[in-house]
């Protein structure tokens, strides 16, 4: 049963279907980016397939591959109870040519998902009605889920306070010792907090009971 979808795709698109595999009932087809929209339209409109629900769309970066960015589309057919995963690969080392046809005309629900893939992975969708960032802010530069984005790089919108202005260390502190915090009203602590002994050292349950 589960091979039917892949068989139909191979029959219809021939060599434009680059790879297929099936694991535990999960069908996956890697297609040429040139037939991306044709494959989608076929899956949507063929009455025997009827994939009417776009479940997810995401980008996966494989920086050592060429093309490096894989775009993954998960589909579900409500009427047939069938799932399929379609992948395609775009973009060279500098993400040049990372363009795909937008599928918003096929499934309107992909509108925000394509914006997310654009925002996170930098894939541009031709014909998208409103292709702009959806999670990050407009001032953000780069695409954070590309492996070439530095893991520690942040782009704050407001300038951070300096330590001089704050009057306290702003970097993350070492773990606090037993003598820090709670300078008031604790058992065994003087109220002025001058000699903070270990506050009311807990008795062990098994020793002195």
């Amino acid at each position: 049963m589960s091979q039917i979808v892949l068989d139909k795709l191979r029959e219809r698109f021939g060599t434009a279907i680059l790879e297929t595999h099936t694991n535990y009932g999960d069908d996956t087809a890697v297609v040429d980016r040139g037939v991306w929209k044709a494959v989608a339209t076929f899956l949507r409109e063929d009455p025997a397939l009827d994939f009417d629900m776009p479940v997810d769309l995401c980008g996966v970066d494989y920086p050592n591959r060429m093309p490096r960015m894989e775009v993954v589309l998960h589909l579900y057919s409500v009427s047939k109870g069938q799932r399929v995963r379609i992948k395609t690969r775009v973009g060279d080392d500098d993400m040049d040519g990372a363009e795909l046809d937008s599928l918003v005309g096929v499934w309107p629900g992909l509108n925000w998902l394509e914006r997310e893939v654009f925002d996170m992975s930098g894939v541009r969708f031709r014909g998208h009605p409103d292709l702009r960032r959806i999670l990050m802010y407009p001032e953000f530069e780069g695409h954070p889920l590309q492996r070439t984005y530095p893991a520690q790089k942040t782009q704050p919108l407001v300038e951070y306070r300096t330590e001089d202005e704050a009057g306290v260390p702003l970097n993350k502190l070492e773990p606090f010792g037993a003598d820090e915090g709670m300078p008031f009203g604790r058992k065994g602590l003087p109220r002025d907090g001058t000699s903070p002994a270990v506050p009311g050292r807990r008795r062990s349950l098994t020793e002195d009971n």
Partner: peptide, 20 residues
């Protein structure tokens, strides 16, 4: 207080970076 484990591109590492 510190950003917690969100040590990444999207999270302010502690609101004291912005306000007292």
């Amino acid at each position: 207080a510190s950003g917690g484990f969100y040590d990444n591109y999207t999270t302010v590492p502690g609101i004291d970076k912005i306000i007292p």
